[in-house]
Design a protein around this nucleic acid. Structure first.
Lengths: 217, 217
DNA sequence: GTCGCTCACAAACCTAGGTATGAGCCCGAC
DNA sequence: GTCGGGCTCATACCTAGGTTTGTGAGCGAC
């Protein structure tokens, strides 16, 4: 896979993963902060969900540690809200007054773990490690897909139409028939598609189309 | 997608989904049985996990309702055991003495739901409906994949090698070079692959290879 | 042994894919 | 207006893909 990365200021030092801690109790925040920092991870502390939504987060792998009981909003509702806003950071819940339905709801909504207080330090660290790993996976997949999407965005309307039919398995003359073009024109568009998408073989183009979920004609 | 179905005795009447109920309390079994039957679903009752493992289950969509506390084995351990044995029926847990760690473990292991007793009838029916739908999806995906696998299994070793390189995007002459063959031989193998896999275009073959996870050369 | 399958290769032939050169049309931006 | 981009098409030429027919070697099963 060719990563078509955009121009960046070249971050020399790779930042450590970031753990966002959301809890209304300062003592809990501080305690988690030192625990997380002790294993070399960066932290960001918030006393309320709203604070998190305002500031933007750095572009590094990470996760969120979220108390279920928060000022103004349930942690579970906040989970939904984050999802709706496209913030896909994995969430580790913790709670002092949890029950089974809460746990089920959180896990169904994609939480990595759900820890009842009191929990052992190691439990939290394991959950955070798993969450960060999940985020790393997701970021990798997203980055590769973004490159594909931006390449696909450079195609003209016609080129996209031709690509759609080509990856569906139609021959050039068939594409020409469907689109009301001559075969030579289809060939030219097809060549442009291959060049712009940065592939040399039809097989690669088909795989790209699959990843992009190019609509069937 | 061409379904290459194997020869079957043509089941005229589509069987209803099957709900397997595992609980050591006969009263609970009976109660669930009548609830599930009341919505037109078939049931199979077991008092202990071992009974389930002996008999074979019919080939219809379904799910398992499993008590966490079972004679001889934890429902959670039994969940693992089923997974190891390749029994992928979705599981709805119920428990009278559940806690959060149990819930988390069950959900992480893929349970559809985890209901604390007492639960309302409708909760159980909703969970069962969701579980059956999940099984239906899984069965559909599995059936399509099985057809692909059986087609792929009819290929000779050489044909598989050629297919691998062809879907990787190599030209016939390049495949010939890699495998130490002449180009004409590659063309013949390639034609056999297309015929045996039941596709007419390279695009389709690439998609099949993706679904089959054909190893990169 | 011989039958069937796999594998390999060749000659001949046809279709499909790909590129270069050149040219005309439309349309929106500067 | 004209300049560029997108779209269209033609001729010409070359490469790649695909099938058919025919040949022959190796090998395991019956």
């Amino acid at each position: 896979m060719i990563r078509q990365t955009s121009v960046k200021p070249a971050p020399a030092a790779p930042s450590p993963p970031l753990v966002v801690i959301v809890d209304d109790d300062p003592a809990v925040r501080e305690s988690l902060d030192s625990l997380i920092r002790s294993v070399g991870l960066a932290t960001r502390l918030f006393g309320a969900p709203a604070e998190l939504l305002q500031g933007s987060l750095p572009d590094v792998p990470g996760c969120i540690i979220l108390d279920v009981r928060l000022p103004g909003i349930s942690g579970l509702d906040f989970q939904d809200q984050l999802a709706r806003q496209g913030i896909a950071l994995p969430i580790v819940f913790m709670t002092g007054h949890g029950d089974i339905p809460m746990t089920v709801r959180a896990m169904k909504a994609g939480a990595v773990d759900f820890l009842a207080k009191p929990f052992r330090d190691q439990e939290m660290l394991d959950a955070v490690t798993a969450a960060i790993e999940r985020d790393r996976q997701r970021r990798g997949a997203t980055a590769a897909l973004d490159d594909l999407r931006s390449a696909h965005a450079t195609l003209t309307t016609r080129e996209r139409e031709v690509m759609t039919h080509v990856v569906a398995g139609l021959m050039n003359k068939q594409v020409a028939g469907v689109l009301g073009l001559s075969e030579i024109t289809v060939k030219i568009h097809r060549g442009n598609v291959m060049r712009k998408m940065g592939v040399r073989t039809l097989a690669d183009l088909v795989r790209m189309a699959e990843a992009l979920d190019v609509p069937k004609p």
